[in-house]
């Protein structure tokens, strides 16, 4: 059977890179993204340039029935997928009181609720006699306490916990689950401006989306439990494990003061 991957948040950033890297491997695609996000252009580009079929679903995944609607669409078109990439997510870089309650609801619905529901529906959808893969996009931030990322980091910690649990539950089955924990990625234009100003080690932790996607897909097919792209990021995690908690808090507070004084 030919592999088919369902990728959420596929029109931009890391999701787009997942789509391109999968297409390069000749894997068929079901791409999910918001309406008016340029998805049909991307789909056309992939169909023309690579040997793969591409099916588009334009839908807002923060709405309550969207996850079910995605799999309904697959059934209607008699499509089956065996790879799920839970990539769609909403980030923030702001003090807690700066964002509205609606923003946090949408963020939690997209990053948590939607990931859980799609995974649940995927496990029901697949043929468990054949190999299946799930890639959940967490964040290196899920390992650290990062101020101004309070809700985002918490949702990614959720994804981490959820993924590790599933990995245990699914031992001995044909379903493999990987957790991707990337550091900073040059994706959105706003980030391009922000990351433009970084220097030294901080710059080394920022990777290009295509590099992250390539490492992630390679790790997924090698059935790695957690994928941390980039040497600097792996180093960061090791250092983090070695430093005692009180020292870490001190470092974060000092840096926070620098942020506050700007």
């Amino acid at each position: 059977m030919k592999n088919t991957a369902l990728i959420t948040g596929a029109s931009e950033g890391l999701g787009k890179s997942f789509a391109i890297e999968m297409a390069k491997k000749g894997i068929d695609l079901v791409l999910v993204a918001l309406p008016e996000s340029g998805l049909p252009h991307l789909a056309n580009y992939l169909r023309q340039n690579f040997d793969c079929q591409v099916f588009c679903i334009e839908i807002d995944l923060t709405l309550p029935h969207s996850a079910a609607a995605v799999f309904d669409r697959l059934d209607v078109h008699q499509l089956s997928v065996n790879i799920l990439i839970n990539n769609a997510g909403l980030g923030n870089w702001s003090w807690f009181e700066e964002k509205s309650i609606d923003f946090y609801r949408a963020q939690i619905d997209l990053n948590i609720t939607n990931t859980v529901m799609l995974t649940r529906l995927f496990l029901h959808h697949i043929n468990k006699h054949l190999p299946n893969y799930i890639l959940n996009v967490g964040s290196l931030g899920g390992h650290f306490i990062v101020p101004k990322k309070q809700v985002y980091g918490a949702t990614k910690s959720f994804v981490g916990y959820f993924t590790r649990c599933l990995q245990m539950e699914l031992i001995g089955t044909n379903v493999h689950v990987s957790l991707l924990s990337p550091g900073g990625i040059n994706t959105k234009p706003e980030l391009l401006v922000m990351n433009n100003n970084l220097k030294g080690f901080a710059k080394a932790t920022i990777l290009e989306a295509d590099v992250v996607a390539r490492e992630a897909i390679e790790g997924l097919f090698k059935m790695r439990k957690e994928i941390i792209p980039g040497f600097a990021n792996r180093l960061l995690l090791i250092i983090d494990k070695l430093i005692p908690a009180f020292l870490k808090e001190l470092i974060i507070r000092r840096n926070l003061r620098a942020v506050l004084s700007v």
Binding site: K16, L42, D210
Partner: peptide, 29 residues
């Protein structure tokens, strides 16, 4: 280019490590 020549509606396939390209993209925004 990954395979066929790029046209206007095609997406960018790789990141922006080259400063000139990155800032020209931001200028288009």
């Amino acid at each position: 280019t990954l395979n066929l020549p790029v046209a206007e509606d095609d997406p960018r396939a790789v990141g922006f490590p080259i400063s000139y390209e990155r800032t020209k993209y931001l200028a288009e925004l």
